[in-house]
């Protein structure tokens, strides 16, 4: 009677997939952006915890593709279509990209939250995948949980309560 419900945990600069009735979550998103791609009919979804906007920023020999908006979204889309999801039914929900701290500095890194949001939106536009809901920007960290059976994205913020989009 009681189906065991798993919650799949996505770490920092990580990417995972889920199918109903399981859920998928990532916690403590600050300037990072949580991107959920899902096929509502198949009840399949994937979530990426994107840390940086562009893989061209990488100065590593062995790059982690899940860390960057462009490569993470490529892998997210491919992983879902490989599992039978349709690109034409695919939708996106995104959350995160906060500016946690604000003060004057020469470092461009202060704007990393907004830059991550822009990069994710640009990539989704290239794929022609619509963003049907978003909760981005602001100054608060977020923990997000996605349920592929209802396509609800549940968001919790410290001192700002909880919302479902």
């Amino acid at each position: 009677m009681n189906e065991v419900l798993n919650i799949i945990k996505v770490g920092i600069a990580d990417l995972k997939f889920v199918s109903a009735p399981d859920r998928i979550r990532t916690s403590g998103l600050g300037s990072c952006v949580g991107v959920v791609l899902f096929d509502p009919r198949k009840q399949l979804a994937g979530m990426a915890h994107v840390m940086l906007p562009d893989s061209h920023m990488a100065k590593q020999e062995k790059m982690n593709r899940f860390k960057y908006a462009d490569t993470a979204l490529d892998d997210l889309l491919r992983g879902l279509t490989d599992n039978g999801a349709s690109k034409f039914r695919m939708k996106a929900k995104i959350a995160g990209g906060a500016q946690m701290f604000s003060f004057k500095t020469s470092s461009d890194m202060m704007r990393i939250g907004p830059r991550n949001i822009e990069a994710v939106k640009e990539k989704l536009a290239q794929f022609h995948i619509p963003i049907i809901a978003e909760d981005v920007g602001g100054k608060s960290g977020r923990t997000i949980v996605f349920d592929p059976s209802t396509t609800d994205l549940h968001i919790r913020k410290v001192n700002h309560g909880e919302v479902t989009i």
């Binding site: 600050g30 990072c32 860390k67 701290f101 608060s140 923990t143």
Partner: peptide
């Protein structure tokens, strides 16, 4: 200094941005 009350992940990840371009 900048003060913030928030989740550990949201706060500390910010300090790792520079580093994350060269390392995991």
């Amino acid at each position: 200094p900048s003060l913030s009350l928030d989740m550990v992940g949201a706060i500390l990840t910010f300090g790792l941005i520079e580093l994350s371009q060269v390392s995991d």
